[in-house]
Nucleic acid binder design. Structure first.
Length: 596
RNA sequence: AGUCCCCUAGUCUAGCGGCAAGGAUUCCGGACUUUGAAUCCGGUGGCAGGAGUUCAAAUCUCCUGGGGACUACCA
């Protein structure tokens, strides 16, 4: 009780200080920001720097497979890897892990390059392909054979699987396991030369068929695939597998910290084993990067697997990889989200080893925070309701100068028009207003933002349908510069647009793609697509300020009280198209919902 | 079933033997406001459970429980 009494005046003092001397409090805040949180990966790196493990060098990489579009989960990895490289004055590579010509395509290479660049990561001149190293990978394989640590196996896929055993049963050795080094060398060369058909032979590492880690039970490292590769064409008909290729790629590039997701944790043992076996021309062990695993991102109300995203695209559930409802980078870009917002988000959620489903509202928060700063304000009407100001002269027009941003005066001013016929948003009028409804209703007053106070005198309805056609309102000529607090009858000011200043626009209202928090948590007999939000896209015709006809594709605005919008690339000379990036927070309608 | 990994508010995260367990978001109040926005103030809410070590445990050890990875010639 005493605490409460004491707390009261203190809060008030703080609020007073905030109002009068905001700079005092903001300084305080910056100091708090100084204490930077450090994740477990950076801790490992700090330790390595201390011990001089890599001579103070930090070199990371982002190694996508070009078999799909990048999504926000990849952004976590890009930002992490590039961020670390920058922080430690290190380097960052972009490397395509293109060891499987069956699924990989040039189209994906292009989109990935564009996305990584857009995210702000800079690989300078270090854009690499695993396929650049096919020769060296082959040489290393020969070395492994020469050391008696790899052999050519004639077994079929099924036979290999059978002999591998299970997590509880030991594996059995292949009858071809003890071929001579010479025979293996010859056979491997013949594999490379295309003397065998797909699947006829493989090269396997000779490790331990009774190893508790299944991956260590003589893993296949080369398979025969008579396929044209997007990069090397028909030069090769044998291709290395991930475990063989990845560590070697890292080693070749001098990567110090090979950061990947949790599912590769079990692979680390193999990763290390390969690197320990091999040596360079002088007989020294080859460079040995360290693999570190972190938890991938899962976001609520969406799906992240490439397979599922591809399904949404190929089934036409969404309109392509860059449909603004998708979690792909291309979609975020088109939707209007900035790379800076994504960076804030990925920094904000941090990195850890616990599997996580990050709440969508956290992403939304960073998107709003970013847009709030950068978007000029504009008054647009999404669901127009015609309003006639009955006591305003027919042909009179007033120009009103308004700020483009409430706080940031650098964004300049613009001029809007007031006249007899205006449009307001349908949601700002209720014939039978619910409790707490502050906006317009029959007989009620509302402030038109930057302009007059109006009072609803009459509701005109369509005789046939009974739908509201227009509103007849009167205005108060003395109210132009008033604020809402000058008139006890006026609670809020609403946005509006004059007929004289309005041009039509197509407005695409996007919402979350799924209704279910975790769409992968499917009930019996259902599919993840059963949880698609049927209202994830609504297209409406509204009015925007006429100067926007000249605005460029990709420019973002805050439609006052509605949300943030961007001009879409579908815009043509006579069809202006806006995407809603995100709504403004709406505590009032949330309150109404919660009351239900 | 074997090996390995993980477990701090609804969600994400900090903590590294001594904290009133901190921050972000969500939610709920309030101040301010020509955006029911932003901004500001306040509140609800957490160490999976149990034993042990210790003067002292979210932190170290063990057990139990829960979640996950691995049984592809995918990455």
């Amino acid at each position: 009780m005493i605490e409460k009494l004491n707390a009261q005046p203190l809060d008030e003092t703080k609020q007073l200080i905030q109002r009068k001397y905001p700079e005092l409090l903001s300084e305080e805040k910056e100091e708090v920001k100084e204490t930077k949180e450090i994740d477990f990966i950076r801790k490992i790196i700090n330790e390595d720097m201390k011990t001089g493990k890599y001579n103070g060098r930090v070199h990371t990489r982002f190694p996508p497979e070009p078999n799909g579009y990048l999504h926000i989960g990849h952004a976590v990895s890009v930002n992490l890897n590039y961020g670390i490289a920058k922080e430690y004055n290190g380097k960052f590579n972009l490397r395509f892990d293109d060891t499987n010509p069956i699924t990989e395509e040039e189209e994906y290479v292009k989109s990935i390059i564009e996305d990584v660049k857009w995210l702000g990561a800079d690989w300078e001149d270090r854009l690499f392909f695993a396929s650049d190293y096919f020769d060296r990978l082959y040489e290393y394989a020969v070395q492994l054979i020469k050391k008696g640590k790899a052999y050519v196996d004639d077994l079929s896929v099924e036979e290999i699987r059978k002999l591998r055993g299970t997590v509880t049963e030991l594996g059995k050795e292949s009858p071809y396991r003890n071929r001579s080094i010479e025979e293996n060398l010859a056979l491997f060369e013949r594999m490379k030369n295309g003397e065998f058909v797909d699947g006829e032979k493989v090269l396997r590492a000779k490790i331990d068929m009774s190893h508790p880690n299944l991956l260590m039970r003589d893993p296949v490292i080369y398979r025969i695939l008579h396929r044209t590769h997007h990069n090397t064409g028909d030069k090769w008909c044998i291709y290395p597998l991930y475990d063989w290729a990845h560590g070697l790629e890292d080693s070749i590039e001098g990567i110090t910290h090979s950061i990947c997701t949790l599912e590769f944790e079990v692979h680390r043992e193999l990763y290390d084993w390969f690197l320990e076996q091999l040596e360079d021309e002088e007989g020294n062990p080859i460079f040995h990067p360290q693999q570190i695993e972190f938890a991938r991102l899962n976001l609520s109300y969406t799906v992240m697997s490439k397979r599922k995203l591809l399904h949404l695209v190929s089934e036409g559930i969404v309109d392509g990889w860059d449909d603004p409802r998708m979690p792909t980078i291309a979609a975020f870009r088109r939707r209007g989200v900035t790379p800076e917002a994504i960076k804030k988000f990925t920094d904000g959620i941090g990195v850890s080893k616990r599997e996580r489903i990050v709440d969508f509202s956290i992403l939304e928060h960073y998107i709003r925070e970013d847009l709030e700063e950068r978007c000029p304000r504009v008054m647009s009407v999404i669901e127009p309701l015609k309003v006639i100001i009955t006591n305003y002269p027919d042909d009179k027009e007033e120009k009103i100068e308004v700020n483009n941003h409430t706080r940031n005066k650098d964004m300049g001013k613009r001029v809007i028009t007031f006249s007899k016929v205006i449009y307001i948003d349908n949601s700002d009028f209720k014939e039978k207003p619910p409790e707490d409804f502050y906006r317009l209703a029959p007989g009620r007053k509302v402030k038109l933002k930057y302009s007059y106070t109006i009072k609803c005198e009459k509701v005109v309805k369509d005789e046939k349908t009974g739908k509201i056609k227009e509103l007849h309102c009167s205005y108060d000529p003395d109210s132009k510069t008033c604020s809402t607090k000058d008139d006890p009858e006026v609670k809020v000011s609403i946005h509006w647009i004059s007929e004289k200043n309005a041009i039509p626009a197509e407005i695409r209202l996007y919402d979350r793609l799924f209704l279910k928090e975790n769409p992968l948590d499917v009930e019996e007999g259902k599919d993840f697509t059963d949880y698609i939000n049927p209202d994830s896209l609504k297209i409406v015709k509204g009015f925007v300020e006429s100067f926007l006809a000249k605005a460029e594709v990709g420019s973002r605005y805050q439609f006052e009280r509605l949300g943030y919008f961007i001009i879409d690339k579908d815009t043509t000379k006579d069809n202006l198209v806006f995407n809603r990036i995100i709504t403004l927070k709406d505590t009032w309608s949330k309150k109404l919902e919660n009351r239900k």
